[in-house]
Structures are given as C-alpha cells and as structure tokens.
C-alpha cells in the first residue's frame, strides 16, 4: 500500500511550499534534500496494485471537475438545475470554450475539503442531477456543440427522495438520449467511475481514462459485501474486478489511457492538464471531422459491440 509514502509526500510538499514562499537562498540545500526525498518516496509508484489505484482515484487532493474547467476551458458559463424540480450540486456543468470552440461540459462534482464534499454530496447525484446533465447535453445537441463529460462518482445517491423521483428512470433516460446525439461526445473517467451513476454520463464516441482512474460495476466494498458478505476483502475485490484504466482499455471499453505524473495528478497538476488537453484536442478534432450521421452511427456501433 502506497498510502503511507503518499502521506509523507504530502508533508514534504507542504514544507517545500513554505520554503518557496520565504524565497531565501540559504534554504536551497534543504529544498534539494526535500525534493530528493520526495522522488525516493514516489519511486514505488511505478508499480501500483489495483488497490493502490483505487486509493489514488479517491484521493481528496486529486484534481476534480472545477480544476479541469479552470485549467482546460475558457468563458465558462455555469448552468444550474434541471428546470423541472431542483438543482443538484453533485453535478456541475455548462457552456465553455475549448481551444476557442464552444462546447458543453458536465460532470460529477467532488470537493477538496470535507465541507465541499458534504455540499456536493461526494459526487453522488440524484435524479435532478442526471436531468440537469441531460438538459445541458440536450442543448449541446440542439446548438451543435461537442459534449465533454467528466466522470467521478462513488455511484448514484441511495436515498428515499432519489427513489421517489425515479433514480432508475433518470439514469436510463440519460443513456438512451446520449446514444442518439449527433454531436461529438467525449467522456473522461477522472477518478472513480462507479455503477450506473457513472455510466449515466458515459455514453460517448470516445471514452478516455486517467491512468489512475477506475471504472467498475460497483464499488469494491459493495462488490465484496454482495459476493462474499465480507466488505473487508477489499484488496481482493479491487484485483478481481479488473477495474483499472489498463484493464478497462484491455476490455475494449476505454479507448485511451491518459498518463498521469508519478504518484497521481495531484503531484503535478500542470503536467496532468497538459496531457488531458492533448488527448481532448486529438480526439475532438478527429470527431469533428465526422458528419452528424457518422457520429451517431459510430456511437451506436461502439455500444452495440459491448460484450
């Protein structure tokens, strides 16, 4: 488990930040020592287990949709609510420009602090959240804007109101409608993509995954407790579920894996955004060269072929 070394790295990052803010020449040697110590601690990250990747995918410091929108897009105009019942803070999105091109962007929202996570319900959406996403995406289809979705959720919210308002129908409707769009759709699993709550934003022409993101039918804890009635068999579940980005690429579900800095995106966000920008640019220009009919058929063929 890389948990301990990454906690140590976190402490070193803070010390380095402090020294940098002082900007004194006499601290140079200490800075050098710290960065060497950090490199030593990150070395085991070249060979991560599935459980390590689940840990990284859920890390609170990991960049989330707010960070991606700031780093990769301009002119962001947030759209709020499903205009039917309510606004769900677990889903975030609107209209923006990517390299100058107007696009619609939407995804699950997670925070970097406990307060933010409570406010965003840890990225667990309710039906009104999925319907908010649908409203954003339907408008993209209407105005011919490409759609980019960011997937990062432990799953759909299991609650009384969520069930009363048709959680199942909301997820199903999103998948059905997404399958019929004629605009380019790119989905990126950036953290944990768990269950139908993830797939509700994932019926796309191209599915990309960050290197340490995971995608699965259910959380490893849920999987272990359903199959073995024992949620403590977490590590075993992570391994057997084949949920890492490489596994999902191997299963022909993901089209491409976007490399991350050693130890995860949070260790060098700028580098991560650079890789994401390149991957989106490449896939978007390929898709934008296709006609509406081709894009529709391409997407239908992709999901028809899912075994």
């Amino acid at each position: 488990m890389i948990r301990e070394s990454l906690m140590e790295v976190g402490r070193i990052n803070m010390q380095m930040e402090e020294l940098r803010s002082k900007g004194r020449a006499e601290d140079d040697q200490e800075m050098l020592d710290l960065s060497m110590e950090k490199a030593r601690l990150l070395r085991p990250c070249v060979n991560l287990t599935a459980e390590d990747k689940v840990f990284l995918a859920r890390k609170i410091e990991r960049p989330h949709i707010d960070d991606f929108i700031k780093a990769l897009f301009t002119d962001f105009f947030e759209q709020r609510g499903d205009h039917l019942y309510d606004d769900d803070p677990a889903i975030y999105g609107g209209i923006a420009r990517f390299h100058g091109i107007p696009v619609s962007v939407v995804g699950h929202r997670k925070g970097h602090t406990a307060e933010e996570n409570v406010a965003y319900n840890f990225g667990m959406a309710k039906p009104e959240g999925y319907r908010k996403a649908l409203r954003i995406m339907d408008q993209a289809e209407k105005f011919g804007r490409p759609i980019i979705t960011f997937i990062d959720t432990p799953g759909a919210f299991p609650g009384i109101d969520a069930e009363e308002h048709g959680q199942g129908e909301a997820i199903a409707r999103n998948m059905a409608r997404m399958s019929s769009y004629h605009v380019p759709v790119i989905s990126i699993v950036t953290g944990e993509g768990s269950s139908g709550g993830a797939l509700a934003l994932g019926v796309c022409n191209r599915l990309l995954m960050l290197e340490y993101a995971v995608y699965s039918v259910l959380s490893p804890e849920g999987f272990a407790s359903i199959l073995w009635k024992d949620s403590s068999r977490h590590a075993e579940a992570c391994e057997i579920m084949k949920l890492t980005a490489d596994d999902i690429r191997e299963a022909n579900v993901a089209d491409e894996v976007i490399p991350e800095p050693l130890g995860g995106g949070q260790e060098n966000p700028k580098r991560l955004y650079g890789s994401m920008d390149m991957a989106i640019e490449k896939n978007l220009s390929a898709l934008m060269a296709m006609s509406p009919g081709e894009l529709l058929r391409d997407k239908r063929r992709k999901f028809r072929g899912m075994q």
Partner: peptide
C-alpha cells in the same frame, strides 16, 4: 448487475438503452 462479469455487466445498461431508444 451480474457482479461476476464486472464492467461487462455495466456496459449492457448502455447497450440495451441505446437499442430501446432506436426502436422508439
């Protein structure tokens, strides 16, 4: 979901929904 089939089980949701949409 059929847990034993992992992500392959999940993808059937998109496949069947897409088919129903086209039929509709």
């Amino acid at each position: 979901a059929r847990m034993q089939e992992g992500i392959h089980s999940l993808m059937q949701m998109a496949k069947t929904s897409s088919a129903v949409q086209e039929f509709s």
